[in-house]
Design a protein around this nucleic acid. Structure first.
Lengths: 114, 114
DNA sequence: ACAACACTTAAGTGATGACTTGACAATTAA
DNA sequence: TTAATTGTCAAGTCATCACTTAAGTGTTGT
């Protein structure tokens, strides 16, 4: 699990750091969508939206397939999960530490209980 | 839950998108550390490391208190949790949809089983 | 054939980011 | 008091990001 290139996490978190791209992810969480559908609600040109889409694809969060002249995009839950796990892992580590510390304090100074 | 300023997520994900800052978070997951301790293993100047630390603090992922001439930094698990929940939420939505779709396909075309 | 459609690419611009060096506080140790 | 430690601020530099407009590529409907 620790063997993954950090670059992937770089790109994934960077992709998620932009509100436009998070909006795209939110939309895609409801189901697949075409490039135009993703771009339509955004306050920018189609070309601008495509740049964001490119970032999402390069991060691996989104995959797409083109049939005819329409490109359909969908979310990749695995990549989402990867980012989630990194965060969860560090948080678990830190909270476990806090728990141990609490237990130690409780044990060495039982007056402080309750 | 949807009422939080998107800005916080912007900053949190942006903070996590840099390997140097993730290294700092990893270090802080083991326990509090001073500015120098955080900067020591990094291939950059102290001032450079402080800029990263500033980003982490502005995102809320890290808090710090200065006593004497030493500033001690620690992780804020709540902020970590916030980012985690955003990702988990979208992923859950999408995977729930995939499950529904799978169930539908199984029901309408039972030949495909096993 | 022709036009409308759905993208795609390229080039350019202004704003952020990730550093650097260097000067400067504030605290502690000798 | 002097000097070392620990951190902070201020410029300045170079790269990357977030767009824009404009032009171009296939695809589909008439």
């Amino acid at each position: 699990m620790n063997n993954e290139p950090a670059q992937h996490l770089d790109r994934t978190f960077a992709a998620l750091s932009d509100p436009t791209r998070r909006a795209m992810v939110e939309r895609l969480a409801q189901g697949p969508a075409t490039v135009s559908e993703l771009a339509a609600p955004l306050p920018m040109s189609l070309a601008g939206a495509m740049l964001h889409l490119k970032v999402l694809e390069e991060s691996g969060l989104v995959t797409s397939r083109k049939v005819g002249r329409v490109r359909t995009c969908r979310l990749d839950p695995q990549r989402l999960s990867l980012a989630e796990q990194w965060v969860a892992g560090r948080r678990a580590l830190w909270e476990r530490r806090l728990d141990r510390l609490g237990a130690f304090l409780d044990a060495s100074k039982p007056d402080g209980e309750a």
